[in-house]
Write a protein that binds this DNA or RNA. Structure first.
Lengths: 261, 261
DNA sequence: CGACGTGTTGATCTCTCTCAATTAGAGTGG
DNA sequence: CCACTCTAATTGAGAGAGATCAACACGTCG
């Protein structure tokens, strides 16, 4: 550990009043049941223990760690992953501002997955048992959390479909669209000028169950076809329609009825 | 449909009083926070709308269905899946007695996945908004549900690791162990005489992102090595240690510290 | 300027898929 | 009791998508 961390000041920034923070919490961007009342905001506020900042590449939760608290991603990107003992890594999901972290592990149990920061990032820290407190004191918030958790699962479901049944080309098309949408929804301009895209090709490969080399070759192909562009850490979708068709992604609506045979 | 099914009596058995049913609900086998109070049981009881029975192969929820209620699997096996428009199917998870079904979809939204019965099965049916009722009227139960949902996700996480990063052999070893454990935990003898195993090789293939043929060849290899046996619809693990080593599965404990390089 | 991290590309290699057939068992009808 | 049908399990052979191995290009950084 360096005796004089280069930017230790990040650990104790000129902290804005915490209250303002919770009011502007990105968590509220999620399509929640209803707007939280000021009482509820206060409740969350009171459970919040502190903030925690990481630099890109640092790890928030180690795989197998036993005492991980609960977090909320305040800003930046992160990802959850699992590894095999020989080092093979699978990224389970990417986390954007407003996502929950650590509900998966039963209290007092070992974390089933690690969490690393993808960019410099800020997290809100909660005690593990505040999950219970929240449920007890605000059923509404409790309900929102189970819904959020379920939503998280449905994203993993999507990835599993990709990794299990889509070709490399299809997987990448699918991931680009899905990540673009998520990132765009956090922006005012809805991604008209592209969205921030901090993943390296290694992250993409590990998220899609592909090798780095094959990921690169496939992405170049898509790029040459004019479907997308990644430049200066931003992702631009140039032909969403074709990408969506490639990924077999049903826009927003229901799945098209497919012929019975 | 046969005019006189051999055991049609299963469809309308001498129904035990519903109360008895909820008391003996397999959901209670889950390592919940605490034993539910009789009040809580009564609450669940009151929200339960009816029971629903399916025969093996029938579908409970169609992909894209918009009005699916909430279910609980009372007995039998089922599975959740997604398909691509050309028919490729990925099984997301297998459901055993005591599992929740349908929390994933936002109310009023389209089901993101289908659910089929794997064996003859019985389900408890709840109205969609009873999820909210439950939270409102019993924070404890609400908490349990978010925990259960999170647990479901961690199972999908495991599968994603397998499908993304494990070889065919490793995937199968891993699935056999995990399913064995789940099935064994529902039995009194903890699986000493094997556990029921209703999956066809097609289900295994679809659950692991493999082709049917390769699944078969790989399973035969493992079987010839004496690692497991499937016979008469039951699964017997004959060499768990080797299977676990193959799957790189950390028994119950934490992951072994792996060398830093 | 050399060390790194990330992105690219070409050349094999191989695990897994697809295609084809065959076997075995359960259920049906004559 | 036997022919017929269907589903699930098996096995062999050939094809291919994606993995692995090797270099090299580029930009950043101490």
């Amino acid at each position: 550990m360096p005796t004089t961390p280069p930017n230790d000041d990040a650990v104790a920034p000129a902290a804005p009043p915490v209250e303002a923070r919770c009011n502007a919490c990105p968590l509220r961007r999620h399509a929640l049941f209803e707007e939280p009342t000021s009482e509820e905001i206060e409740l969350v506020q009171s459970l919040k223990k502190r903030e925690h900042r990481l630099q890109a590449g640092e790890t928030l939760i180690h795989e197998g760690q036993t005492d991980a608290p609960l977090y909320t991603l305040l800003e930046g990107w992160a990802f959850r992953y699992k590894t095999l003992s020989d080092g093979r890594r699978q990224i389970l999901s990417f986390l954007l501002a407003g996502d929950f972290i650590g509900v998966q592990q039963k209290m007092g149990d070992a974390a089933a997955h690690g969490v690393d920061a993808l960019t410099d990032a800020a997290f809100c820290v909660f005690q593990r048992d505040s999950l219970w407190e929240l449920h007890r004191r605000s059923p509404t918030m409790g309900f929102n959390i189970t819904w959020l958790t379920a939503h998280e699962e449905s994203m993993v479901d999507d990835t599993l479909l990709s990794v299990g049944r889509r070709s490399a080309e299809e997987r990448i098309a699918s991931m680009l669209i899905l990540l673009f949408k998520r990132a765009a929804s956090l922006q005012a301009d809805a991604g008209r000028e592209g969205v921030p895209f901090p993943l390296t090709q290694q992250h993409i490969a590990d998220g899609l169950g592909l090798s780095l080399v094959h990921t690169n070759k496939t992405m170049r192909k898509l790029e040459r076809r004019g479907l997308h562009r990644i430049e200066g850490g931003r992702l631009y979708l140039r032909d969403v329609r074709t990408l969506a068709r490639l990924a077999d992604l049903w826009g927003d609506g229901r799945p098209p009825q497919r012929p019975l045979v």
